[in-house]
Computed example of a mutant assay.
Amino acid sequence: MTNHPPNRTTTSLLICPLALGLCLTANLTAGHLLIQLISTAITALFSTIPADSLLTLLVLFLLTILEVAVAIIQACVFVFLLSLYLQENI
């Protein structure tokens, strides 16, 4: 008795890369939304409390660095999972 992988339909072969892309998009969009919200808060705080605005600007800078790191990691994970997926199905 041989050990063959289960047969997959064309639909299931298309769903995996789409799901990976959806996860990547959701993770990156969440970071961008958070950066947008903090930027809006900085703009609103600057006219009333400039010291808090500068502190929030520092948080925004750190969050931007984190977002770049997350983007790099997400891209690496996406490529790794996609290559595993392709090796399994080709």
Rank of each mutant, 00 (worst) to 15 (best):
T40L: 09
I90R: 13
G31S: 04
L24K: 07
L66D: 09
L81P: 01
Q36S: 04
L60V: 00
C16W: 11
L54A: 10
L28Q: 09
V68R: 02
I42N: 02
P17Q: 01
I72F: 03
L34A: 13
Y85Q: 05
L45H: 02
F61Y: 08
Y85P: 00
I65D: 03
E88M: 10
S53G: 05
A44T: 06
L84Q: 11
L13V: 09
A19Q: 08
N27V: 10
F78V: 05
Q36F: 07
H4K: 13
V79Y: 04
L81E: 02
S39T: 05
S47E: 08
S83K: 14
L22S: 10
L62P: 06
I35W: 03
N89I: 13
Y85L: 04
L22V: 04
F78Y: 13
L33K: 04
F46K: 15
L28V: 06
V59A: 13
L14C: 08
N7A: 13
I38R: 01
F80Y: 15
V70H: 03
A41E: 11
I72W: 00
L86W: 03
L33H: 05
A19K: 07
L18R: 12
I49L: 12
T29A: 14
I65C: 07
N27K: 05
L60C: 05
L54E: 10
A69S: 12
L57V: 08
I72N: 00
A51Y: 09
F78N: 08
P17D: 00
T43G: 05
T25Q: 12
G21T: 02
A75Q: 06
T56N: 07
L22Q: 05
T64V: 06
A51D: 12
T2M: 09
V59G: 06
H32E: 13
T40H: 10
L84P: 02
I90S: 11
A71I: 00
L24P: 02
E88R: 13
L45G: 02
N89R: 14
F78D: 06
I38M: 01
M1G: 14
L54Q: 11
T2E: 10
T11N: 07
N7R: 09
L18F: 11
I65A: 09
P50Y: 04
S39I: 02
L54H: 08
T43A: 15
F46A: 14
A30M: 09
Q36C: 00
